[in-house]
Design a protein around this nucleic acid. Structure first.
Length: 343
RNA sequence: CCGCGCUUAGCUCAGCCUGGCAGAGCAGCCGACUGUAGAUCGGCUUGUCCCCCGUUCAAUUCGGGGAGUGCGGACCA
């Protein structure tokens, strides 16, 4: 694969790259890229889009590491109780492997690292404390404002969170930090503070944050706003049917975004087309080879939201089906990770 | 260690002073209008009023005790 194609694969479907020049020069070799997931709530289709891209990285020859950020899950307002960290980490790992496989890549090529495996070492702790000594409360709050749950009385855990995440980059020896654009504040802090403590500033790659199905931002606390990776066919159908999807409009349109960032890349990998079945009355069936043509038809109102939704639900359901099947075989993973929901 | 505040619907909170069938907004659900959804309109659901004891015909409300949570003060050799 030539250099240009590698860059294209790594950079496609991203919201921002800091900086493009730095990324390009990293491709002189095979750099290490990492993304961290805090094992909190159940994983959804938003996670899937970021994980889908790991397939791009692998194909471009990058070393891919996934941090299962167990301590972060607890430090951020105790989103996960300490006692559930192991169970949720196991669930996240299985889910992520399932998504990588569903994206057409080999999960064995991804290196998984639990946070507690290295975040408690004395070197890490010392670095953390030294960073804490020269980082103001205001600075760390600003850095974490889009990620860490905000409250009137923030805990020390939430304030430490951005510093841990910065040190993770160094400890994992990652050249590139990958994550949603909501992580921008934290990694900009990393770029500032890591060099002051003897480490390299990471190149940053940010994924766009996709809209929720109810319009506006996707929210984990709003059930209808996202499709969970273990939702059954009926739930997928229902959620897509209920989705905010104004005719001809692209903005805040979750249905279109899932097609662009998740479904089409997967179909592209398999060289499959996207087929919309439509009554003759409304123009009959249509086939799309790429997202751009579909969006153009939708914007010109040649493609009605109802027909789009029906097809989208089918393809989304098909995309998560293999992941759902994995958990059907191992129901304890979910029961133990989310006893309140599944027990 | 001391003082003060808070705890009521899924969420944010009002009500308590002056005891009398537990409320609002948001969310959710159902209809109407749309070849989807949303918006709009109409309708509807939801409660261990933190716990225990006491006073009272009657306690979410008053008194006592306790729990959880938050803030402040004191201590600073």
């Amino acid at each position: 694969m030539d250099r240009e194609e590698r860059y294209r694969l790594v950079a496609r479907n991203t919201a921002e790259i800091v900086t493009e020049e730095e990324l390009d020069s990293l491709l002189d070799r095979d750099p290490t890229i990492y993304i961290g997931y805090a094992p909190t709530g159940e994983m959804h289709i938003g996670h899937f889009t970021t994980i889908r891209k790991l397939a791009d990285f692998l194909q471009a020859g990058l070393d891919v590491k996934v941090l299962i950020a167990d301590l972060h899950a607890h430090l951020d307002d105790e989103k996960s109780p300490f006692d559930l960290l192991d169970a949720r980490s196991a669930y996240y790992r299985e889910a992520i492997e399932g998504m990588v496989a569903a994206a057409g890549a080999d999960p064995k090529q991804v290196e998984f690292v639990p946070g507690r495996e290295f975040e408690l070492s004395s070197e890490y702790s010392l670095d953390l404390l030294r960073m804490a000594a020269d980082t103001t409360v205001a600075r760390t709050r600003r850095a974490g404002s889009e990620v860490v749950r905000q409250s009137e009385n923030p805990t020390l855990g939430g304030l430490l969170y951005p510093l841990l995440q910065s040190l993770d980059v160094a400890a994992l020896e990652a050249d590139i930090a990958y994550g949603g654009i909501d992580q921008r504040g934290i990694y900009m802090l990393s770029r500032e503070v890591l060099p002051e403590h003897g480490y390299d500033a990471p190149v940053c790659l940010f994924a766009p944050l996709l809209s929720g199905l109810t319009g506006g931002k996707m929210s984990a606390s709003e059930a209808g706003s996202s499709i969970t990776i273990t939702d059954d066919s009926e739930a997928v159908k229902q959620k897509v049917a209920d989705a905010y999807c104004p005719q001809g409009e692209v903005e805040d349109n979750g249905v279109l975004e899932y097609l662009e960032y998740l479904i089409f890349p997967i179909l592209d990998e398999r060289k499959d087309p996207f087929v919309i079945e439509r009554p003759e009355e409304y123009g009959g069936n249509v086939t799309y080879e790429g997202y751009a043509a579909l969006e153009a038809d939708f914007v010109s109102k040649g493609l009605h939201p109802q027909d789009l939704k029906t097809a989208a639900a089918t393809y989304i359901d098909e995309a998560i089906a293999p992941i759902r099947d994995r958990f059907a075989d191992r129901p304890n993973l979910l029961i133990e990770a989310y006893p309140e929901t599944y027990d």
